[in-house]
Design a protein around this nucleic acid. Sequence first.
DNA 1: AAGACTGACAACCGCATCGAA
DNA 2: TTTCGATGCGGTTGTCAGTCT
Length: 315
Amino acid sequence: MGRQPCCDKVGLKKGPWTAEEDRKLINFILTNGQCCWRAVPKLAGLLRCGKSCRLRWTNYLRPDLKRGLLSEQEEQLVIDLHAQLGNRWSKIASHLPGRTDNEIKNHWNTHIKKKLKKMGIDPLTHKPISTTNDEAQPQQQKQHQLAQDQQEQQEQEQHQSFQTNPKSEIDQKEESDTSTTIIEDKIITNPLDPMELINGFCTDEVPMIEPLEILIPCAPSSSTCSSSSSSSNSSNFLEDLKLPDFEWSCTFDCNDSSNNNSCSRNMGWDGTDFCNWDLLINEEDFDKKQIFDTPLINQYPRMVMDQESWAYGLF
DNA sequence: AAGACTGACAACCGCATCGAA
DNA sequence: TTTCGATGCGGTTGTCAGTCT
């Protein structure tokens, strides 16, 4: 007797999400917050299982997601973290603000693995590939696994000691001269990283969003939004919607050296994110906004530009 | 021009884990 | 303490655009 399926699969839709489904899900979460994923599809009027909704939200609809290729820095961080954590993608993702475990996992499998192999580094062990002694590989893997297990055990022990004596744990970690510092299974990669600072959580630790807690950044004054044609009237656009009230506030000033714009951020919402949402939320205005004329779309050449799948190009 | 192949990534599946009853 | 439902996580698969032949 197997485990019961997470949901009644009869009549449930599978496959790519449509814009309409995205809109329903976003509207629902904006009005109700994230709660009880199993109930979400029913309440939101979606023929999807809760799991699918959760995945869609966390991986693609969440407003605090960065899109596009990982930067060099991010890539290097992923490599460093993978060396320490192995395939624990969610842990790795939690140290890259705006990135999801799925995204990192895919990027690892499609880009980084190859890159490392090209450089003569075994992506599994992060050690130079021994070309002369292929049979040594399995042994190496075993050793890597052993090392990982030992590290895990150490982490657990350290965690325990941290609970009893947190200061000594931090002191220990401060002695490390590596660029990344693990504190209670959390790697502080950049002490100035806003995502690390804001509210003490990062992307993968996004708290339940309640409508009243959603803070929309100040309307970008000029060029912060890549979708300029749609950004210009984003507030009006939102007002047109019967969406929950938003609080337009400047809670966090980020001094972007590139454009010197002071913008508001909360949970990683920035001008671009918001503009994307702007496009997504109300597909009735879809034609009016002519979003496909915008440079944003050109960033995603793979996207199919029809109404069904336009959402994919928006983030 | 068309079919085959490849790469990238979105989405699914099933097991693990957590927490409430 | 046990059971069970909900959610999280990592591996795998499916789909589609781009490239090659």
